[in-house]
Amino acid sequence: MEHHTGFVLPNSGHNRDAEASKLGMWLFLFTELLLFGGLFIVYMVYRYMNHDAFLMSSFELSPVMGTINTIVLLVSSMTIAMSITAIQKGNTKTAIKLMSLTVFLAFVFLVIKYFEWSAKIHHGLFPGMEHYTNLPKGEALFFFLYFFMTGLHAFHIIIGVIFIGVVISKTKKGLLTSDNYSLNENAGLYWHLVDLIWIYLFPLFYLIH
């Protein structure tokens, strides 16, 4: 900021403040957790009320696909964490490669999800379809929550891909460096959150009996 007053406040809101941006990101992650938290509560209540129907429905999902996706996301979390170490050490090129790999893995996740979803939709299990409307109430709730929660999660994956894309392009332009990498860290934090939510979604829908 350019002042011709001869006086500049030391604690300006326009100064670069890595701590502030990380604190802001953490607060934002809190809100994301609570957003999904509302859905987890609904899931818990309806699972309690419709235990058998939820169990029956969960057999329709493929644990193999789910497991592959879990591994894909965990690896992508690792690659983005590595990219942050790389940029801290000034290895910009490695950082870009690792972030691009993260984006690639995100696409792998989405493609697998796409096949899972289309198999369910093919069976008419999407809310509003003919087969769905004839399902018992508990099973209908299970599939609604399945589509709603994994859909919202997939939406977050897409936002994350865009976020990491922006970080990649800024890193390429040399705007993010070893002394200024809080945006990289924030992208990493966000990506870990997306991963973390999946770690809970996976057992809730695919595994628990």
């Binding site: 957003l35 509302g38 809310p127 709730l141």
Partner: peptide, 25 residues
């Protein structure tokens, strides 16, 4: 504001979804 608002956000989304998709939430 930070810790309470997301809950209403997701709840209202569920109301909208229930209206649009006819799910018994």
């Amino acid at each position: 504001q930070v810790l309470a608002t997301p809950i209403i956000g997701i709840t209202l989304l569920m109301i909208a979804a229930e209206r649009m998709l006819g799910v018994g939430l």
